[in-house]
Write a protein that binds this DNA or RNA. Structure first.
Length: 594
RNA sequence: GGGGGUGUAGUUCAGUUGGUUAGAACGCUAGCCUGUCACGCUAGAGGCCGCGAGUUCGAGUCUCGUCACUCCCGCCA
């Protein structure tokens, strides 16, 4: 009798009072069944929304009888007339709450066992269960909406970049290992036994080659792979919006990227962002916020007090300054009421970032309450009062250590204070560019220079002379885009001159032989007519995470992995069969426990 | 590699100083109910207390180990 397949007329979000009287066919999953004995209500759900279906024996006794067997998550098709809800029965909480479908046909396409958890936002199943039944989890409005937002965002990106002359070009996944940076995922080669491809950490070199090939503007929304330990905002495979342009300045690249981000927010959230994102140099970001990814949604800026305490009686501070360290402070306005316990918690927090201690002073009406106040002279106190704008009711925190530790610990403490004091509005989006990064830093453990960005980043023109002589003070033409304290994108002008590229390799301790072996193809290309070029890559997952106000990228990825990089749905990774291993010429040696 | 948190019914959780029969809510099953929309009422089923050792007369509870999930440090241009 019933054969509804292929006859769907609407999604479950579509029907309104204007459709009353129309005959419609809906398909979907049973969100909920309410059996009143005489009449049965079913909330029918599809990707778009929910519509109430009524099975009334007055309309069709047979269909009402058939509806008895319906259970949650059954997949059904329903034909019927759109009707107005009865007087006083309108549900204002539903998009389609003014109408209902009076079913005169019902087809059960699939029965379903009771789901492991209920398909509702208010039911919080553990992440283990959710990942194990991801197909069910994805039915929940929260995840479904995140995935739909992600689609809208990538479409906005594609349209924007296409309109601006960018060409979508695919680059290989089976490629060559590049030693700089993260650990590679390796793929064994069957036809070349003992040899391995690496999955790309980013299409960096390929997009540079595409510029040299003359494509001028390239983009790709592309998976990248890094075999490193995971975090809430890090997955072993993640997606980048990757782009590269020829014959442009960093200004033009940043402008282009800003336009793209603005389009994404307009498309997904209907939000108009500030006309121009603020700029901070790396040095300024470190000075004021302690981190190269400052959260600009609140104040609490860091303040350098090294000069004031250089000769103080508090030996910890004085000796740090003497040893080229840094003493910085944050004035938490009006927080002198912090308890001993809260201060201890903050001290513990700072210790995570290697701060050896967290000094503090509570500013009272008549005195400074603090374990260290007694060491300061009146002049020092007055200087601190002015520098930090100290007023009664304030508490000020100090970290004294080598610059790297002072900045990191106090910068993280600033974020923690922002959270604790509820200074962060979660509907705000505060962007900032960070520019003028150092080109290189010194790796103490490996005793050599390392590229802060990557080895293909162009140094600032005016610093070229001191490349070898004053390496650590050379700035680069790199830029990061930071949103609410999270790095969402980064890029640079690249080196298009082979001689300069060779100089950089040399500084990084990459010998000529090694450079030729690993990057020979790039050097060769640089000799073949390389245009000046640069680009940027955005972490799509992180961007969508922020757009969707999630705190884990797992909630914006359809099938994410656990912290141990496993997939609870498919049980990947798993052991390979002997025959497969033999074909690959691989033997597994398990290290036995002692 | 290291530190913290969690693990008890299908799900989310409670579980007293170690004590005899491990509870609640939601979900599920059955029955009743013609206007619900977190429907209602009645009854019922459902437990390897993550796993393994140990201490003890006795362990969900204490100890050790282990596994899984998670947050963080290291790591991640």
């Amino acid at each position: 009798m019933t054969d509804l397949i292929g006859k769907r007329t609407h999604y479950c979000s579509a029907l309104r009072e204007s459709h009353i009287g129309q005959e419609v066919v809906l398909m979907g999953w049973v969100q909920h069944r309410r059996d009143h004995g005489g009449v049965i209500f079913v909330d029918l759900r599809d990707r778009a929304g929910i519509t109430q279906v009524v099975f009334n024996p007055v309309i069709s006794a047979a269909v009402h009888e058939k509806a008895q067997e319906i259970r949650n998550e059954y997949v059904i098709g329903v034909k019927g007339k759109v009707a107005a809800r009865l007087e006083g029965m309108v549900n204002p909480n539903m998009e389609t709450g003014a109408i209902e479908i009076l079913a005169d046909e019902l087809e059960v396409f699939s029965r379903a066992k009771t789901p492991a958890f209920q398909i509702e936002d208010r039911v919080e199943a553990s992440e283990t269960i959710r990942l194990q039944y991801r197909h069910l989890d994805l039915r929940r409005p929260q995840l479904k909406n995140n995935i739909l937002a992600r689609h809208k965002a990538t479409m906005a990106v594609r349209n924007y970049l296409d309109a601006n002359g960018f060409i979508d070009i695919e680059t290989p996944f089976l490629t060559k290992s590049t030693p700089e940076g993260a650990r590679d995922y390796l793929v064994p080669s069957r036809v070349n036994q003992g040899q391995f491809y690496a999955l790309p950490q980013s299409p960096q070199l390929f997009k540079q080659l595409l510029m040299i090939a003359g494509f001028d503007r390239y983009y790709q929304i592309v998976k990248c792979f890094r075999d490193e330990d995971l975090r809430a905002d890090r997955q072993p495979e993640f997606t980048q919006i990757d782009m590269e342009l020829s014959f442009v300045t960093e200004e033009q690249i940043m402008e282009m990227a800003e336009g793209m981000i603005r389009t994404v927010f307009k498309t997904v959230l209907d939000l108009d962002l500030d006309p121009s994102f603020p700029r901070l140099t790396y040095d300024e970001a470190m000075e004021r916020f302690g981190l190269d990814r400052p959260d600009l949604r609140f104040g609490l800026e860091l303040c350098n007090v090294s000069d004031i305490v250089a000769k103080t009686g508090f030996k910890v501070f004085a000796s740090v300054v003497k040893n080229n360290g840094l003493v910085k402070a944050i004035n938490a306005k009006g927080c002198a009421s912090f308890t001993r316990r809260e201060i201890d918690e903050l001290t513990e927090f700072a210790a995570v970032y290697k701060a050896k201690g967290l000094a503090w002073i509570k500013i009272k009406e008549d005195q400074w309450q603090s374990p260290i106040a007694k060491f300061f002279t009146d002049d020092e106190k007055e200087a601190l009062r002015q520098r930090l704008d100290l007023e009664p009711g304030d508490i000020v925190f100090f970290v004294a250590d080598q610059p790297k530790i002072t900045n990191e610990a106090l910068g993280q403490l600033r974020n923690e204070l922002g959270r604790r004091l509820n200074l962060i509005r979660d509907d705000e989006f505060k962007f900032t560019w960070v520019t003028d990064f150092p080109l290189m830093e010194y790796d103490e453990t490996e005793k050599r220079h390392q590229a802060l960005h990557h080895p293909f980043t162009c140094p600032n023109k005016e610093d070229l002379d001191k490349l070898e002589t004053d390496t650590l003070n050379v700035k680069s033409r790199a830029y990061d885009l930071v949103l609410n304290g999270i790095e969402i994108g980064g890029g640079s002008i690249r080196i298009h001159d082979m001689d300069l590229q060779k100089r950089i390799f040399k500084l990084l301790g990459i010998g000529e032989a090694e450079a030729n072996e690993k990057f020979g193809f790039l050097l060769e290309a640089l000799e073949s007519g390389a245009p000046p070029h640069g680009g940027i890559a955005f972490g799509l997952d992180r961007l969508i995470m922020l757009v969707c106000k999630e705190d884990s990228i797992r909630n914006v990825i359809a099938f994410p992995k656990t912290q141990k990089a496993t997939c609870l749905l498919t049980q990947a990774p798993s052991e390979a069969g002997l025959a497969q291993l033999q074909e690959l010429g691989i033997r597994i040696s398990k290290i036995s426990e002692q």
